[in-house]
């Protein structure tokens, strides 16, 4: 996500096209995913530790490149980067209240909701999705019927990099119009919680993400209710712990 957020900004500034920025951002995220795949699958490194190492790599190298191209180590506001356009849905945009809520969001917001459908379709309605799930469920069994387990795992990692890339680009080219060091602030891990909370399915991830989106939005407005900003900022993380533990317990009881 960090790589995508950075390269989206840098490339859009250089080429003058937000879309090329988006593309580069997504590709860079997939590149990191490919590295993770190579180290985990080919060189048999521990997935979690490699993930941690790549996270560190990204937070270091993004600042490095940011400094190289903008001369600033904290924020990219020095370069004129572009923002992806907002989208008005014809028809709905003019309806009061509903129009305000549903229409006029960043184009990636709609992409996010559509990709839930795409991911769902891919995972549950295509042969490849079936294979992918089989590999996750029982790799040996999948291998015994001729599925190339490592190749499927690699594709899965690349796809996850693809979607994470959109997330990163949204942060720097939609949510705000600049790249800041460490701007993801643990969102990758929150995404993990959201997905676990949603029972590892596409629609579950949607609900999980909505819950966390709500806590973040609540944190942003909490000062209006005279809640100290520090506590408000901590709310999404507290919610993540509660959700994770609650989910783990529910699953444990249901399997007994």
């Amino acid at each position: 996500m960090l790589q995508a957020a950075l390269w989206g900004v840098l490339v859009s500034a250089r080429t003058g096209s937000a879309w090329i920025g988006l593309l580069t951002g997504v590709v860079s995220a997939m590149g990191i995913a490919a590295l993770l795949g190579y180290f985990h699958l080919r060189l048999r490194s521990d997935l979690i530790l490699t993930g941690i190492a790549l996270n560190i790599f990204c937070s270091g190298s993004t600042v490095l490149f940011l400094y190289l191209f903008t001369g600033n180590k904290g924020i990219s506001s020095g370069v004129k980067s572009l923002v992806l356009p907002r989208c008005d849905i014809p028809g709905i945009a003019n309806i009061p209240i509903l129009g305000e809520i549903v229409s006029g969001h960043n184009v990636l917001t709609y992409v996010a909701f559509v990709s839930v459908l795409i991911a769902y379709y891919m995972l549950y309605k295509t042969p490849y999705g079936l294979r992918l799930r089989a590999v996750g469920e029982h790799p040996q069994a999948a291998a015994s019927v001729g599925i190339r387990v490592n190749r499927v795992k690699m594709v899965a990692l690349l796809l996850s990099g693809f979607f994470a890339g959109f997330g990163g680009v949204f942060l720097s080219m939609g949510y705000v119009s600049w790249f800041g060091r460490g701007m993801t602030a643990g969102r990758g891990f929150i995404g993990l919680v959201a997905e676990t909370l949603g029972g590892r399915s596409a629609f579950g991830a949607l609900w999980g993400s909505l819950v966390f989106g709500f806590t973040e939005a609540f944190a942003a407005t909490a000062q209006a209710f005279r809640i100290p900003a520090e506590f408000a900022n901590a709310i999404p993380y507290i919610a993540a712990i509660v959700a994770f533990v609650a989910y783990a317990n529910r699953r444990r009881h249901s399997t007994r």
Binding site: L43, S45, S61, L64, Y67
Partner: peptide
């Protein structure tokens, strides 16, 4: 910039954990 050190550390970890 100083973050080169971070990049170096992460590469070390990557290579150390790569069993094969």
């Amino acid at each position: 910039s100083a973050e080169m050190a971070m990049v170096l550390e992460s590469i070390i970890v990557l290579l150390v954990t790569a069993e094969a």
